[in-house]
Amino acid sequence: MSVEAHEIIPIPQPDIVGKEESIPEAARRKLSSPWASGLVILITILWTIPTFGLLVTSLRPPEQAQNSGWWTIFTDPTMTLNNYSEVISGGSVIPNGIAPYFFNSFAIAIPAAIFPLVIACMAAYAIAWIPFKGSTFVFFTIFALQVIPLQMSLLPLLTMFNKGWSMGPITVFPDLNKPGTEQSIFVGTYIPLWVAHTMFALPLAIFLLHNFINQLPRELFEAARVDGASHFLIFRKLVLPLTVPAIASFAIFQFLWVWNDLLVALTFAGGTPDVAPITAYLANIKGSYGAQLHLITAGAFVAIIVPLIVFFSLQRFFVRGLLAGSVKG
């Protein structure tokens, strides 16, 4: 078998290790077959039409969007941007606009992409290069934690943020309330979302970054240790710069994962415009205003435009990160 783990989980390999020369493949590439090309083009069109239909519908006036198929745009090419201005700041049909949720998504996803990566990078370094008893055990335990589905954690975590945790007489996590109220200080903040996303991202992030950091050349660390460099210095000056490609790939994946997430958002943010992300808003208007096709489609397009920009501009990193992260859950 020529398939190695990193091809299935293709986090980039450290450059300094020296890449294996891949066998020149041009030799066995046949002339392109017209039959194969035709079939691929057909599937490509099939795969693109639904998204195209969404875009077209979002650009049509309410009357046309609700009472005719989007394909009639070719005979009735009336287009407008009004749906967007209405769904962004709210209008007569849907009073609440998408704008606050859009910004919430950024405010949630940026920290929730950076926190787990930094913490995972440090943990991966410790497991790989600080010699201690049981490091293999720690690594395998973290690896095994990927088995736990998100669903297992939701209820207990929510209780922790709202009421604190105690095991008998020992307080494991204090019940922090706003002064003079019964309401937890975390309500209406991004903190539970950041923390929950960080927790759920860690097993996979540590596993993948460990695979990467582990392959950095041993001599590098030995030389630095002999020179008396502390782990802190080695991490900052050696490990972090060399790990940038792996970090970038995974950061993009994690950003999109958080951006597209609905389950964690519904559980920890509720549906208020204070903290809820764009996915929660979409799910909400789909449920309450399902007939307003022109607005729903415009809202959906606002929500998917950010991932699509990331996808088309950073495709190389995106593919790596997504493939590496697709086992997450």
């Binding site: 943990a123 600080i130 934690l145 954690s153 945790w165 759920f200």
Partner: peptide, 21 residues
């Protein structure tokens, strides 16, 4: 080094996955 590098991850995993499971 152990506390700083491994501590945060261990605490978050204990609170976020192990105990909840």
């Amino acid at each position: 080094a152990m506390i700083v590098f491994l501590g945060p991850a261990v605490v978050l995993l204990a609170y976020g996955l192990i105990a909840p499971a």
